[in-house]
Amino acid sequence: MKKAFAFYLLALTLLTACTFNPDVQMPGESYIQGEWQQDSVTMQKQLVSYSLYNLKFNCDSFFVSIKTISKINAGADSCTKSGSWTEYAKGVYEQRNDTLHVRGLFCNANYSYKNPTGCFRSGIYEERFKVSKIADSVLQFSPMSSVISFNARLINRTTCTPKPL
């Protein structure tokens, strides 16, 4: 009797512990849906290098372009294009309290995955931002990997229409 009960308990545990992933996108956070543009960095004229972000959020997915401007040449000129280059990443995000966690892969501008032998970073892109609402159309992003926060203004509001995966 004890063995039968243990077997049924084990079977019930396994059935309730495993769940299938949803077959459609999750809705994500409604306040962040759309395209957000960073226009400048505090004291950017005094900085040796800085990055400007363009973030797009659609349901639970994100796409980011990171334009870096540098006054120093740290690599091959075909990559750095005389001190200015752009990197792209796409993936999914989740928010817990005031922290936005984005995780994905570096990609090309057309959303195709990036060849790891090309210029700049490839592979996993992961960042956590503390997000604060400054106004209805302005958010402040504070990257946990940097001391420089940035404001991004809303340039295009969208609504989530979940797509099949």
Rank of each mutant, 00 (worst) to 15 (best):
F129E: 02
N108D: 15
L47T: 01
T86S: 11
Y50C: 06
E35T: 13
S122F: 12
A152R: 00
T13V: 03
T161I: 07
N108S: 14
Y88A: 12
F7A: 05
S122I: 06
T99D: 08
V24P: 01
W36E: 04
N151F: 07
N58P: 01
T68L: 09
S145G: 02
M1I: 12
I124V: 12
D60E: 14
Y31W: 11
S70Q: 08
G104S: 13
T99K: 07
Q37G: 00
L9T: 02
R128G: 02
N108Y: 15
M144R: 05
F63P: 09
F62P: 00
F63I: 13
L10I: 03
R153A: 09
I148F: 08
Y113R: 10
Y113W: 11
S145N: 12
C107I: 10
T19A: 11
I148A: 00
K67P: 01
L100A: 05
K90G: 09
L100F: 09
A74R: 06
Y113S: 14
S40G: 00
V138W: 11
G91M: 14
I66T: 01
D39P: 00
Y50L: 06
Y8P: 02
Q140L: 10
S70E: 12
I32M: 06
P164H: 06
T158A: 07
K130E: 13
Y93R: 04
T99C: 01
S65M: 14
L139V: 04
V131Y: 02
Y88M: 13
F7G: 02
G83S: 09
S84D: 15
L165Y: 10
A135V: 13
S30N: 08
F120T: 05
M43T: 05
G91F: 05
T86Y: 15
S146F: 01
E126H: 06
P143H: 00
Y88K: 08
T159W: 05
Y113L: 15
G34F: 04
A4G: 03
K56E: 14
E127D: 07
K133A: 14
Q25M: 15
F63K: 12
T19L: 08
S49I: 03
K90R: 15
Q95L: 05
T158L: 04
I69P: 03
C107F: 15
E35G: 00
Y111C: 10
S112W: 15
A4H: 00
N115L: 09
C79R: 11
E87S: 12
N21P: 09
T13W: 00
L47F: 04
A17Q: 03
T117G: 08
T161C: 08
V147W: 07
C119Y: 10
W36P: 04
A76T: 03
S145M: 06
S78T: 12
A74V: 09
V48R: 14
K45Y: 13
L15T: 07
L9A: 08
P22I: 14
D60N: 15
G75M: 13
G28A: 10
R96Q: 06
E126F: 03
K130Q: 15
P143F: 04
M43S: 05
A135P: 10
K114G: 10
Y93L: 08
A4Y: 03
F106D: 08
K45V: 02
L9W: 04
A109C: 11
F7T: 06
G104P: 07
T16N: 03
M43D: 07
Q25V: 02
K3N: 04
